[in-house]
């Protein structure tokens, strides 16, 4: 079983990102689960969401305490939240940041850290600083736990009421971050 924990802030689509991972894994033929750790939902407050991927039914409902993959949507969280809690030398970290790898203040092996400037991509392609979809391209590339094709399928399904233009922009942003 692969366990994924996503850190972000209220309003950044943290929960949606977890759901998209689960939907993409399901489209890949896997069994998956996604759920939020809700606080009282306030814009800007630190938020976590979780996803699990497995080849057999997933029964456990506990939060993800020892993630195989850590996704950090907002680098400012590094100053206020112990995002690396429960991570070990095998945890892969996907972080949205404009900084260089050596400048990232996180106490985990640099070889496991994948930095992507998702904000820059999102601003250029989507036109808004909403990185929850964009960063998933880097997640798919770095971990291989979901395919790009299934991620695109998940975006189409999840955003089907938002219109063709938003779907295309999000898919393009994911493709861009997948290249990195």
């Amino acid at each position: 079983m692969v366990q994924i924990r996503i850190h972000g802030r209220g309003g950044q689509g943290v929960v949606t990102a977890a759901e998209l991972i689960a939907m993409a894994a399901f489209a890949d033929g896997k069994i998956s689960q996604a759920f939020p750790s809700f606080g009282v939902e306030r814009t800007g407050a630190p938020i976590e969401a979780f996803a699990r991927i497995d080849n057999k039914p997933i029964r456990t409902r506990e939060h993800v305490y020892h993630p195989d993959v850590l996704i950090i949507q907002d680098p400012t969280l590094l100053d206020s939240v112990d995002v690396a809690k429960g991570c070990d030398n095998n945890t892969l970290v996907i972080i949205n940041t404009a900084k260089l790898k050596k400048e990232i203040k996180i106490n985990l092996p640099p070889k496991n850290i994948f930095n992507v400037d998702a904000t820059k991509i999102a601003l250029a392609i989507i036109g808004k600083n909403l990185v929850n979809t964009t960063i998933l391209g880097a997640f798919a590339k770095a971990t291989g736990y979901v395919s790009l094709n299934s991620l695109e399928k998940a975006i189409k399904e999840k955003f089907k009421d938002k219109g063709e233009s938003i779907i295309t922009k999000n898919i393009n942003a994911i493709r861009q971050s997948y290249k990195l």
């Binding site: 977890a18 759901e19 689960a22 939907m23 399901f26 069994i31 998956s32 689960q33 996604a34 759920f35 939020p36 809700f38 997933i58 409902r61």
Partner: peptide, 10 residues
């Protein structure tokens, strides 16, 4: 509540 209502699964 939440554990099932807000969780995605097959």
């Amino acid at each position: 509540g939440f554990t099932l209502t807000h969780t995605y699964e097959p």
